[in-house]
Design a binder for these strands. Structure first.
Lengths: 359, 359
DNA sequence: GGATTTTGCTAAAACGCTTGATCAACATTG
DNA sequence: CAATGTTGATCAAGCGTTTTAGCAAAATCC
């Protein structure tokens, strides 16, 4: 039944039907060359706009025309095969697509890659090691220019062995004890900036609701908080710092503790906490910012910009993280701190901090 | 007899460790073949686990060993060149990466593609036509299996001409007047489900705050609202439906109108509106759900799950949209309604609707 | 013990493109 | 006029695979 296909290719080559036969046009350089009556080398030279190629103007015209007529598209595979290297950059994420704002890493990487003529190959591992290995293999097999290994929250990470087979950059994570290039948010500066939003307005009793969960963010932001106090000449009071689970519930629950402290301002570990805190305050008739100034962290648009009043916050530079990762990978820049590059967390001031300190 | 091509020059080669290949020195099939003392054809057959290939067990062993020793990785480019088709699926998005939850389209597409051995090529056009054209060209040149053309909100879209050069599926958008395959959320069912959360609990005077912005969502959800009322035997009262700008401000401002209406429940066009509405209600001392039941739409985790009380909502199935898009593209399924496939919007009940109707 | 089949493996032709080496004209020199 | 450019285009050798046809040796059959 299933007989072998007849193998008479002798004449098939010389008599090419112009119509497409398969999904996509199997229009090749050779087809164009034939139509234009030139060699395929000539067409190649024209298509690639080789500057030092000497091609007559008339020939050029004919080839151009043939290209249009046939709807020719170069075959990137073949091109890559010859050049030995693709224009791909791999991005393996442990969950970037899952969490809303961290998708910005993809976005930033994609934009920057695109800018330099590269395309992103995205793989989401969802934290699964087997998937991760497959993903990296696949990228390696596609001869990617390099790999961005990213995590959805800032943390220490182990470098999968296979990564060493190519260039790579860690994004939003780092590998302690190695000199692997990494780009991460500057949590210390972020904490400082957040606190400074408050000190600048004259606040001196500023609480910090930190996270209970250990992470670079937790330590860094606290450190930044302390720095900001120090440079404002405010003594650090450990009683004004306490932990809560970093979500709405945590923020809501933190309100009680907070109100005993007699503070005029609060810096919350993240926006979700601030959101919960807002809620608790409203129910107590406490006004933001008139009675209490609040600053968040993460600058999650959908929360911060739309709370009432809009919440001042400090953003995690996910987009920049992705973009900088690509630049590092391509060797376009070697910023200060390399191989451990810290990206600034931008402060965004809204209305949750008044221009004067509450009485 | 194996022809003795025994000029093994570099001694370093034979002592190569299996990990950490240098990024500039690709190992090819031929290298493996030489080490194992077989032809490259043999290696190819083994690597690809060809079922009907007849290879001796001893040879197989030697080749396996050589592969490990050299750390061989097949070159996907070469593979694709031969087969004429890649394992790529393109995803061009007009802003999927920008809006938080729609990144789920990428996620869903990526997972589903991966499941079938395909990789996603992502391009973000940010609505720029030139970028879009470039993106599609690039995908075509990479001989993608097909393209997913997606938009960040559900809308009508024009099909870029180049898309016709390959298989494609519209995701979260559709092309009126064509029979282009498209997969979109079922807004009508969504509106119905949202409203039914309320009717099921006995609510009969249910307001609907619709969006001011024209969109399939606006019309569909209204229609669904009406359907739900009808099947609950509740006459449709146009006065209970009014428009507001679909954000927090809109919801906040809508509270006034709402309270004149003497309704026991509200269906908001989206969660952000509901968020604003919550705020307005709290300030008036009106309790959700005891005084007023509220249902949102979009099921934006960061809002709905964390408002107080958590908001019942209906989700936009972005993940499924992406996944279904891939399945359609690959011809894995041809669901009802093809070529216009509607994906269900799942209702998520939380605590913003009480089990009994307010007095 | 030849004929036939099976087994194990290789040769070699693609796949579509790039590129250094050539080459045939013709134009310019000295 | 021979030597030397210039110009415009072609040749052909790969790039790393897959795959079909084929071949020698071993196994099986009658």
């Amino acid at each position: 039944m299933t007989s072998g296909k007849s193998s008479r290719d002798t004449e098939a080559d010389s008599v090419q039907p112009l119509t497409a036969r398969k999904p996509g046009h199997p229009v090749t350089l050779r087809d164009v060359a034939e139509l234009a009556g030139v060699s395929s080398a000539t067409v190649s030279l024209i298509v690639n706009k080789k500057k030092d190629a000497r091609i007559g103007v008339e020939t050029r015209r004919r080839v151009r025309e043939a290209i249009n007529q046939l709807g020719y598209r170069p075959n990137a595979m073949a091109k890559n095969l010859v050049s030995g290297t693709s224009r791909f950059i791999g991005l393996v994420a442990d969950g970037v697509a899952t969490t809303p704002f961290a998708g910005q890493i993809i976005h930033g990487a994609q934009d920057e890659a695109w800018k330099h003529g590269f395309v992103l190959l995205v793989a989401n591992t969802e934290g699964d090691d087997a998937v991760e290995e497959d993903a990296i293999s696949m990228m390696l097999e596609h001869k990617v220019r390099g790999i961005l290994y990213s995590t959805w929250f800032h943390r220490a990470a182990e470098i999968p062995a296979a990564l060493n087979e190519t260039d790579f950059v860690l994004v939003n994570c780092f590998a302690p004890g190695t000199d692997a290039p990494a780009v991460v948010p500057n949590e210390v500066q972020g904490g400082r900036s957040a606190t400074e939003i408050l000190t600048r307005k004259g606040h001196r009793r500023i609480a910090f609701i930190n996270a209970t969960t250990p992470a670079p963010a937790r330590d860094g932001r606290l450190q930044g908080y302390q720095q900001a106090l120090a440079s404002a000449g405010i003594p650090f009071d450990p009683h004004l710092v306490f932990d809560a689970y970093p979500d709405q519930e945590g923020g809501y629950a933190a309100a009680d503790k907070l109100l005993d402290l007699n503070v005029t301002a609060v810096f919350c570990y993240n926006d979700r906490m601030a959101m919960g805190l807002y809620d608790a305050l409203v129910r107590r008739g406490i006004s933001v910012p008139d009675d209490l100034a609040v600053v968040g962290f993460d600058n999650q648009e959908v929360i911060a910009a739309h709370l009432r009043p809009p919440l001042s916050s400090v953003g995690l530079p996910h987009y920049e993280l992705g973009a900088a990762g690509v630049r590092l990978l391509l060797g376009i820049e070697k910023p200060e701190g390399y191989p451990m590059v810290k990206i600034e967390c931008p402060a965004v001031e809204r209305d949750s901090v008044a221009s004067t300190v509450p009485a």
